[in-house]
């Protein structure tokens, strides 16, 4: 059984259809890149998989290990193992990062019927993971993402990914707003999480990110559909020729 099956998905925002019948299959252990010009529907796809309100699915299905994802609340999806790394992680003043991480991890574990982490066990786990991602301890005491640089916000997303151990990671424009050094640190963090049990969907406008996170498959989206799929070389091809050809094809 595939980990994620998106079948002929049609999505509207207000009165406008954004996805016009999108199909995508992702198996465990695979890394898929989704590329495409602005407005092609890449971020919409990531939001609909994660369950963001405001999108109306008019047709099609999203199955996660065969279960209907669209019937689940966002928190149920998270507990099942779906993780969306946000393009713009939000700042939450007044909620300490540590409190947030423990509350979220324990909520997921509780939903799965697992025992909640004790504070010492949790602290130990966070210290290990944050050290490997070069996240200073004082950052964890601050409000969630409050006063974080762009790079720190993305590393905080990767930290959560490492803590929550999801089986599907969707990285929405992880490269936006990052310089090369920040991108490398975040990408190294993501690469360390690649595993035969975990799949990733990397959404990006630019080929650059895929030099660091090398995908198994590349899909090109244009105007709400996947218009071409191929191996990692397709990304290089796009870098040379641009998206214009696909806009005509769509």
């Amino acid at each position: 059984m595939a980990l994620l099956e998106v079948k002929d998905l049609k999505v509207r925002v207000e009165e406008r259809e954004i996805l016009h019948g999108l199909t995508l299959t992702v198996n465990e252990g695979e890394v898929h890149a989704i590329m495409g010009p602005n407005g092609s529907g890449k971020s919409t796809l990531s939001h609909v998989i994660a369950g963001k309100p405001g999108y109306e699915v008019t047709d099609g299905q999203i199955l996660f290990r065969g279960e209907d994802l669209l019937e689940m609340d966002p928190d149920e999806r998270a507990a099942k193992g779906v993780f969306l790394a946000f393009q713009y992680p939000v700042e939450i003043p007044g909620v300490a990062t540590m409190t947030f991480l423990r509350t979220a991890l324990n909520a997921q574990r509780k939903a799965r019927g697992e025992s909640e982490y004790s504070t010492p066990d949790f602290l130990k786990k966070v210290r290990e993971v944050s050290k490997s991602l070069n996240i200073p301890q004082d950052m964890l005491k601050r409000g969630v993402n409050v006063g974080f640089s762009g790079g720190e916000k993305k590393r905080n997303e990767v930290l959560q990914m490492a803590l929550f151990e999801p089986s599907l990671c969707i990285l929405d424009e992880m490269d936006s707003g990052l310089d090369i050094d920040a991108l490398r640190i975040a990408a190294d963090g993501v690469n360390a999480l690649r595993s035969p049990k975990r799949a990733m969907v990397v959404i990006t406008h630019y080929q650059r990110l895929l030099n660091y996170i090398v995908p198994d498959f590349v899909h090109v989206m244009s105007r709400g559909r996947v218009v071409k799929s191929g191996g990692k070389d397709l990304a290089l091809e796009l870098e040379a020729s641009g998206y214009t050809q696909f806009e005509d094809a769509a």
Partner: peptide
């Protein structure tokens, strides 16, 4: 939504 996407009911 950010909190719910992280598993909080």
């Amino acid at each position: 939504f950010y909190l719910r996407a992280r598993g909080l009911p």
